[in-house]
Design a binder for these strands. Sequence first.
DNA 1: GCCAATATTGAAACTCGTTCTAGATTACGC
DNA 2: GCGTAATCTAGAACGAGTTTCAATATTGGC
Lengths: 218, 218
Amino acid sequence: MMTTYTKAAGAPLTERQEARRRRILRATTRLAAQGGYDAVQMREVAELSEVALGTLYRYFPSKVHLLVATMYDQLEQLGGQLRRKPNKGLPPRDRVVDTLLRAFRGMQREPHLTEAMMRALQFADRSVSAEVDGVSRITTEMILDAIHEDLSVEPSTEELAVIRVITHTWHSSLISWLNGRASIAQVRLDIETVARLIPDEEPAAAAARAAAEDTRGE
Amino acid sequence: MMTTYTKAAGAPLTERQEARRRRILRATTRLAAQGGYDAVQMREVAELSEVALGTLYRYFPSKVHLLVATMYDQLEQLGGQLRRKPNKGLPPRDRVVDTLLRAFRGMQREPHLTEAMMRALQFADRSVSAEVDGVSRITTEMILDAIHEDLSVEPSTEELAVIRVITHTWHSSLISWLNGRASIAQVRLDIETVARLIPDEEPAAAAARAAAEDTRGE
DNA sequence: GCCAATATTGAAACTCGTTCTAGATTACGC
DNA sequence: GCGTAATCTAGAACGAGTTTCAATATTGGC
């Protein structure tokens, strides 16, 4: 769970292949951080990672796949960092806001990289579903971790819906900020606003209530 | 306000030019409805609308501009339709849900067209800010109309934040549905969930309270 | 170690968004 | 109406994502 776990384990990848894959992701991150989405040019990525263009396409079947995979990779690292600061003591809602704002601050440090990954994520079509779902899953886990101090509780349908809405808001308002259509303050306000959907009871009580609701709902 | 009002009135456009513009938008709509984003190819649009490629680019400086303009155009028509059904009697929250679900049903009828417009909207970068803002404005007005029976009230900052969050959710969950990553039921649930942010008081009372809050906040 | 299957390389080719050019055509002030 | 500036047309050309292919290298099974 904490070590590199390959997304779908389609092929076991030899050591050299794993190294190639990492070189590609590193090159992508570098180019994206410098010039954003447009600067990630497949020929450049291939050259920088010392891999033939055809090989690049064998590993990542499109530019969007490549950037979504990069996002997944970055999120795994970020996730580790965020988990290290448990921000206990706050009510769940504030913990979520705190987590998202901290992530946001991280992204402000690499706006081009963020832009490249977010544009790809939003532009992705069905052919990238699997990869996008991966990103979605890891994001959900991150928010879930922030809500529950106890990590073992099973999230309710209701809770998952709230988390989806939070994620939607998070992505869209990030895009607005990147495009200069929203200020940092506005992003923060939007996050605080959507976080109101999280009940402010004790996590345990909330879980219990949600579970009860789960039984009747559907 | 109800007649065709040109977005920025940059140039007054002669009659033939206005006709060209409409031909282009019509061709775009047609192609998009048939095959979605990928089927909207600039050469095809130019040919279908009987305009030279260079001219197409003079009217719409990129494919994304073109599709966002198409979305604006479609929204204007949709707005007229939605306004005709005032769905009175319901609390504001339900009116909003009702409006969005009705819009959603409209989009289900033309999934390819929806996909083309939404992908472009989400992919748009800063160079399309003005046009995206136009779409954003018309969407906000639509939701605002649904919240207030009285159209003349000035929206509060708080209310605008809620509307932004609703719009974010609306766009993102639509994309998820188009990409096959969310079911229709899930989109509906997400809309109902985010709508909980709308206070269920009388519109007048809500406005008053929001105004008061406005004074102290920010 | 050897063979067959698979992966990698390098380079050309193809597609579609976008730009550019040169020559008509149209709009408009006088 | 006339001349000029702006607009439009047809088509070539360019750029970046993607595909293809023959030649070469690596890997895994025996």
